[in-house]
């Protein structure tokens, strides 16, 4: 670096690196909720694609089926989402041809983290939640930050209304701040997971302008993926 004489300039003031008139990023909104049960996992995402006050599309799926047991929900900068999911599909196909088996959900989760961290210094501006059935047949949820930090969880909300939805899940699924003995808490069935996920989206659509139109819900079990649609308010 010294041969180029960089050190004589203080950080951030070198000419030629500031481009105030073009931002490579854009927020296109959208929310995701995923809830894992003992032998199933539910992942839901709304179908609104927007930027600012524009609604580009009212029926854009944000759920990407990566394998028969793994679904990725991705929101944020839609251009980055398209790139990232495209790259994930390519790498999973390459793995399948090399190892002659489908990637497990846990392997996909690790690969997604690495793929995102590869762009540490020019990140994919996306909020990812990965849902699937792990190799023991249990439902799992992985959530990510934009640079690839990965955490395994049982339930998670993300995207533009993630901060609105997460406390609801903490209460209804995590049973936080509920004064009931353990025996009286409702068991987490598939039906209850779908119901709670649906309700959180109905509430989020009331307050978040980037969430609405409809929700796509995927229920993943060892037998396959069941798809449901729920209409939301369109304003």
């Amino acid at each position: 670096m010294s041969s180029l004489g960089f050190e004589q300039f203080p950080d951030y003031q070198v000419p030629g690196v500031k481009h105030p008139d073009f931002s490579p990023y854009e927020s296109n909104g959208g929310s995701i909720v995923a809830i894992a049960g003992d032998d199933f996992v539910v992942i839901a995402a709304d179908t609104r694609l927007s930027s600012g006050y524009n609604i580009h599309s009212r029926n854009q799926s944000k759920l990407f089926k990566l394998s028969p047991k793994t679904v990725l929900g991705s929101t944020g900068c839609w251009a980055d989402t398209l790139s990232l999911t495209g790259l994930m599909k390519v790498r999973m196909q390459s793995y399948e041809h090399t190892h002659l088996r489908t990637m497990t959900t846990d392997a996909v989760a690790q690969m997604l983290s690495i793929t995102m961290y590869n762009r540490r210094f020019f990140p994919y501006y996306v909020s990812n939640i990965l849902a699937g059935i792990d190799k023991d047949g249990k439902g799992v949820v992985y959530s990510y930050d934009p640079i690839g930090h990965c955490e395994r969880a049982t339930y998670r909300a993300g995207g533009s209304a993630g901060t609105l939805l997460q406390p609801v899940l903490d209460n209804q699924i995590g049973h936080k701040n509920i004064n009931l003995p353990a025996g009286e808490l409702p068991p987490l069935t598939k039906e209850r997971a779908v119901a709670v996920a649906s309700d959180t989206f109905i509430s989020a659509a009331e307050r978040d302008i980037y969430t609405g139109d409809s929700v796509l819900i995927n229920v993943i079990t060892k037998d396959g993926i069941e798809e449901k649609v729920l209409q939301l308010r369109q304003d």
Binding site: P24, Y25, E26, N28, L49, H56, S57, R58, N59, Q60, C77, W78, A79, L82, S83
Partner: peptide, 11 residues
Amino acid sequence: NVDLRGRAYED
């Protein structure tokens, strides 16, 4: 539609 950032959608 495809925009200058590569954002694309069908409708």
